[in-house]
Structures are given as C-alpha cells and as structure tokens.
Simulated scan of single mutants.
Amino acid sequence: MTQTRWAVLGPGAISRDFVVGLRASERGVLHAVGSSSAERAAAFAAEHGAEASGTYDDILARDDVDAVYVGTVHTTHADLAIRALEAGKAVLCEKPASPTIDEVERILSAAQRAQRPFLEAFKTRFGPFADALRDLAAGGELGAPERFEGAFGFDAGTREGRLFDPAVGGGAILDVGCYPLALAIDLAAAAGQPIDPEYRAFEAELAGAVDGTARAELEFGAFTAAIATSVIEDLSDVGVLRFADAEVVLPNVWGSRTESPSQIIVRRGGEERTIQLPVVQPMAAEADALSLAVAEGRLEVPQMPWAHTRAAARVLTDWRAAALTG
C-alpha cells in the first residue's frame, strides 16, 4: 500500500499532537514541515524525524508531498489551505476550517477547482464511538432522536495568548464550541433531519474582546440541540442524547487527542446498559480517512462531508457575530 507523504504546516502544539497521531496511522508518514520561519520548521522536523523542512512556499512546491495538515491559527487556515490545494495537495485542516462562512466557501471552491480532497479535522467524527452514535440516531431502536445536550469548556487560567486575541480568531466558540455543534449536525443528519438549523437563542459572556462563554439553542427540524462552550470555565464533558423512548448518556464525549471515547450508557424503561467500544487514535483515524479519499479519487470524506463543514461554518459565523455584538 502506498503511504501518504504528509507535510505539517505550522509547527505548534496541535501539530505536535497530530504528528504523534500520525505514528499510529496505517496509511501515512510525516515527510516534511513548513513554517513562516524556516528555522522553526527545521527544528520541528529534526525533533520529529521529518526528511524535509522549509518555508510554506518551499514545502508546497515539493512534488514529494501528497497531503498537508494545516495546524496554524484559525485566521490563516483559508489562505494556507487554498495555496496547498492549488499546489495539488490534499488538505486536512484543523477545525474550524475558517472563522467565517465566506472563507470556508473559498476553500471548498478551491478544492473543487483543483480536484483535491479537503477535510476539516474534527477528530470526534472518527472511530467506533462516532459510528455507534450515528447508528443509534438512524436506527429507530430507541425511538426518534429528539434532543442533544452537550458542552465543551475549560478554564484557560490566563486571559492572554491566542485564545484571548481577537486578531487570530480567539474565543470559545471557534476553539471548542465547534465540537458540540459538529456533533449536533452529525446526529441531525443521521436522524434524517435538516443540517442547517434554525436559531432559537444565542447567549454569550465576553472575556475582554472575545467570547469567553457562549450558549446556543438550535432547531434541526424535529431534532433540537442545546450546546455550550467556554475558555474561562470548566464545563461538564458528559453529553446527553434524548430519544422518544430512551436517554443516552455519553461520558467523556469528546475523548482526547490520543484516544476516542469508549462508552455509551443507554437508559430505557428503568433499565440501564453500557456499551463498551474499541478505542482508536482519532488523529490517526482522520489522517487515514483523507489518505483513503486520495487513494479512491474522492474529494470528500463521508464522516465529515463538505455539507457539514458548510453548515457548521454558517452557525459559527452567526453565533460568534451575535456574541461579539451583544
């Protein structure tokens, strides 16, 4: 099997986690590192055993790079992703694909023109846990899915740095609020409901010039979602999915950057059963999904299709605008 030769663009903390995940990949290997600073790229490449390094232009000009992982700050995603696509590379771009729906449309248009795959890197979309949730939402065993309640929030401790800098898309909504939103969209799609929701309510509390906490109430046809996020407060990582005939509890619903979630608790008619699921390295799984798309000549990955990226981008754009304007 031909290995995908990966380049990392942006040698930061999230890219280190991706490289760790890539070591568990079945289809890919780290080959190159690109940065705005050739010196930083070289140091990261030496640390992680990549054969090549250089500036972004240096790496995108290479014909021995098949795919790139964009791990830079949110506001640089679109330009880097588009440059990579136009250079003939497949692109795995950290979430959110970009801070606005207009920028996301630019990326997807570039992917369509270049006929190269593009995947927004929602690691939570991959593995047995994600598959099991889709099956429950689609299967009818528990009655119709009616509502999802979930949050992703933590106290960053400091009020400085990337998370609190509006110039680089700081704030809770873009950084981690996208996770419960993406799950709500996935469940709505599995349940046969529309994925572009109506807005019932947006709420937010600012931390300086960015959204520190935020909540949204969304309506996907007959399926609703209450989601919350924060970078100034620890929020519960237990999700709840309510069906007509049961309640499903999702402990540690987001997993980690090294392990997917493994447990689903189904409560029905006074009884409770626990479903144990195999764990995967989620960043390896998303990388392999893009590699498979390349091998099969597809532009999209079914676990995170472009329609879901568009739907998430629209809500993130509107939710964040409402948060910042009060």
Rank of each mutant, 00 (worst) to 15 (best):
F122G: 14
G28D: 00
G21M: 02
A184C: 02
Q193P: 02
A84V: 05
S256V: 01
A78F: 06
D63G: 05
D196R: 08
G10A: 11
A46I: 04
W6T: 12
I195S: 12
A42Q: 13
A214H: 08
V238P: 04
S262Y: 03
D131M: 12
A90R: 06
F126T: 04
F118M: 14
T224V: 14
D66P: 10
L174P: 03
G157Q: 13
A41P: 05
A244I: 09
A226F: 09
A172H: 08
A156Y: 11
Y199L: 11
S98K: 11
G270D: 01
G161Q: 03
F202H: 11
T317C: 10
E149T: 08
E51G: 13
E26T: 10
L80R: 07
G212I: 00
D196H: 09
S291A: 11
L142K: 05
E296T: 12
R267N: 08
G54R: 15
T325G: 15
A321I: 03
P261H: 05
G153L: 08
V20C: 05
L299W: 11
G161F: 00
T317D: 13
F126H: 14
V210T: 06
D288T: 01
A97R: 07
V20I: 12
V176F: 02
A190Y: 00
A184S: 15
P96V: 12
A190N: 01
S37T: 04
V238Q: 07
A226M: 11
L85C: 14
A188N: 01
M1Y: 07
W254Q: 06
T224E: 14
R298G: 09
A110S: 15
A214C: 10
G171R: 01
E103Y: 07
A61H: 10
G326H: 14
L316A: 07
A209E: 15
Q193A: 14
D245C: 03
A289R: 02
A228P: 09
I82A: 11
Q276S: 06
P11F: 03
G12Y: 01
A87H: 08
G169M: 01
H74T: 08
R116F: 06
Q3D: 12
I265E: 06
L85V: 13
V73L: 10
V20L: 07
T229I: 06
P128L: 07
A78C: 13
A167Q: 10
S35E: 00
W306R: 12
I232L: 13
R162Q: 12
T229H: 05
E247Y: 05
A312M: 13
S53M: 11
P197A: 08
A182K: 04
A121F: 08
R134K: 12
A284I: 00
T258G: 09
S236L: 02
G28C: 02
V91Y: 10
L250A: 04
A216H: 09
A293Y: 01
A151S: 12
P302E: 11
A201E: 15
A13E: 15
G192I: 00
R106P: 09
A246N: 05
F18Q: 13
I101H: 09
E247W: 05
R320P: 02
L133T: 14
A172V: 02
G157I: 07
V210G: 07
E286I: 03
A284T: 00
V73G: 11
L92H: 04
